[in-house]
Design a protein around this nucleic acid. Structure first.
Lengths: 213, 213
DNA sequence: GTATGTGAAGTGATTCACAGCG
DNA sequence: CGCTGTGAATCACTTCACATAC
């Protein structure tokens, strides 16, 4: 859905007011069939013989994603990654409002990020309640990740996006999603094997994949 | 596979020399059956009645991922995200060697990142050849992403990890993987819906998911 | 005529359960 | 006896194809 939303935003910017499943499929490179099936999960907006109304469909997707409201999020960890994420997610186009950034290092507390002063991580649960934060982005070192989760289990936090390279555990009722940037590059590495210098022993995995006809 | 590799590294650090599929499953929270099926893709190392040899299995996974060799990668874009990625991926534990960082802004060219001087993006194809870069991380603004791809199509680059929030197109033979951080948070947002203030109309999507028994 | 929405078929991934090996 | 490795069943997702609505 987020991919469709991005494509719709681009289409809207270039003046299109309507889009067919095939046009969307081309923009997102996917098949038209799957686009239609995906969009059928929404309270539909498609018109047969015409296509989808761009603005209306974008609205439906935003509702589906729960970002028709600019959801309040917090960033935990104001290192390079946390800071980069804070800036990136502050663009309201993505559907979020970065309301607080936390760090445990005295040198960073009070420093500005975007237009926020970095808060002490010790105040995390209080700030989550005070600012009604619903989602938290975890961008702390691996060793600290689980303790961040533990600190907010008794708040109304709904979801955690974990960038720390360890799986964290949270009770039911708090959704967790893990993103590991090294993992992404490792998976790419597998599918993009080096050209063997000495083509002697055959590799354990597949060779270069087939062309897209 | 990367998840297993991470778990194995942790197990190794805590003195374990052997691990069962069930132990790995717990560490990665997955089912033991799928762990075994996944690992069966490797030139096996499992011993019935005992489990897997931690060091041997880690080696097999690294080979599978093509990182038994510390693959040379380049980072294109030395903004906040590019810089954060350069630092993160410079940890040799992940299996990569960051050999160059590029940017097109005159203010940044020559500045140090990790222990590299930022290079001019105009020199990208030459540097890819000179340094034998195999993978590129794209961390540039959306508008510049496709031109980065176009600049390296005639080199021996094997894969591109694209962090720019636009789909980029590359010819067959160059693997592309897309990571969109806003998308990840949006997907989390969908699965972690806000608690409705006025529980009047039923939501279009599923409610809070079932507990993990 | 055109493009959606959706049963039905096909394909791939997960789970089960157990034979086989150490 | 324990744990792997894997056929067989199950489940989910994708693709096809067309009736349906505009």
């Amino acid at each position: 859905m987020p991919v469709y939303l991005g494509a719709l935003t681009a289409l809207s910017a270039s003046g299109h007011t309507t889009a067919s499943s095939e046009a969307l499929a081309r923009a997102c490179d996917m098949s038209a069939a799957i686009v239609r099936r995906d969009l059928s999960l929404l309270d539909h907006t498609g018109r047969r013989g015409v296509g989808y109304d761009v603005a209306q469909l974008a609205g439906a997707i935003r509702r589906f994603l729960g970002i028709d409201r600019l959801r309040p999020v917090g960033i935990v960890g104001a290192g390079r990654m946390g800071t980069a994420l804070a800036h990136y997610l502050s663009d309201p186009q993505h559907g979020f409002s970065v309301r607080a950034v936390f760090d445990s290092s005295a040198a960073r507390i009070g420093q500005p990020v975007v237009d926020l002063a970095i808060r002490d991580s010790a105040t995390l649960p209080a700030a989550v309640r005070e600012l009604a934060l619903e989602l938290l982005v975890i961008a702390v070192p691996a060793a600290a990740a689980q303790s961040v989760v533990d600190a907010v289990v008794d708040t109304d936090i709904r979801g955690l996006l974990n960038f720390a390279p360890v799986p964290v555990r949270a009770p039911a009722g708090i959704e967790v999603r893990h993103v590991d940037l090294a993992t992404e590059l490792q998976v790419l590495s597998h599918f993009a094997p080096a050209i063997p210098a000495h083509p002697s022993a055959s590799r354990s995995s597949l060779g270069p994949l087939e062309a897209e006809s």
